[in-house]
Amino acid sequence: MYSYHRKSNEAEWANQPAKYGTTGREKLHEFCAECHGDVVKIRTEKLHGTIPCENCHGPVLNHPEKPEKLDVDRSRELCLRCHTNLPYTTSERKRIPGIDPKTHNTGAVCVSCHNPHNPSLEGMK
């Protein structure tokens, strides 16, 4: 098949700066643990251990130079992405405990009661 090729443009795309680091499933938390491993016990086991740090803490950009402090998303909406109760028994969603956002402590942010780094209901503060 014949088609155009803009060879010089490939480098332009390749040289764009990346915003997110690499905190995904493969290298989970390793990047953040380099500095924060002692301060915060970074959980890599079940429950929230599979969530990349940057999903809540925001893209790492050039942290720690710029920004010095990441803007953490503590909103109710963030938690509701996974923890809204949807009646889908055939999807993976069934594994995740869910609440009805219209009745469950409306207006309150989830992190005022739940600890996202230790989400087990038994150890609730």
């Binding site: 390749a14 997110y20 690499t22 990349p52 999903n55």
Partner: peptide, 23 residues
């Protein structure tokens, strides 16, 4: 979608692959 061409060429996962907690 560029498969995050800039990330691939830096040896990183694309942003969506990196962000997915469920694989």
């Amino acid at each position: 979608c560029t498969f995050c061409y800039h990330r691939l060429s830096k040896g990183l996962d694309s942003a969506c692959v990196n962000a997915c907690p469920f694989g």
